[in-house]
Amino acid sequence: MIQLIDVTKTYNTGKSEVHALKGISLEIPDNTFISICGKSGSGKSTLLNMISGADKPTGGHVFIDGVDINQLSDKRMSEMRNNKIGFVFQSFLLEPSLTALENVELPLLMRKMSREQREKIAIEMLDKVGLRERLRHKPGELSGGEKQRVSIARALAISPKILIADEPTGNLDEATGNSIMELIREHTKNCTFVLVTHDTALAQTADMKITIKDGMISRND
């Protein structure tokens, strides 16, 4: 379970302070599909940072499976992310100098797996997302939809307990976006799926729906 208690986040940009989150409290049960909506600058991505442990809150606590992640050292936090959380982003964030296979292998590398093991899992994942024939292609040689499939395969390679997706269909056309969402949903039945989106129709399909406005939860269904 993911639990946020009175989480605040303030960025000091030098000239002024930006209060990105203003006391967010939230409980996300295991294996839940939760959507987070909100306008640009509302604090969605910052909330995502808090849930994933990518950033530490200024105030409050974030618990994942009962562990206060703010108390973890950088090494333990990195291990936890590597073991439990998968990420999919709008801009794919693939390393251009690596092939699709090598990109998917990246999170497994941190687990100190052998090359053979990594390759086996990565090929299996790329096969699942329909890119069996594109293993040796670099991101520059793939379409937008294919890049996102690679990024999904990379996120799923670690068999995550939590999958976090930030606007995963934002850079894709509608048809490709739909197929990507179907793909993600198909593989996240047994994990918590946190989706940040502008698409209200897509958000409505979630088990839990949250709307963020000015750093606060304005609606929680």
Binding site: D74, S78, R81, N82, I85, F87, M110
Partner: peptide, 15 residues
């Protein structure tokens, strides 16, 4: 930076 942040999220330590 974007890729490195992604790498960090995948478990790369600051060290």
């Amino acid at each position: 930076a974007a890729f490195m942040n992604m790498f960090r999220l995948m478990g790369l330590t600051a060290a």
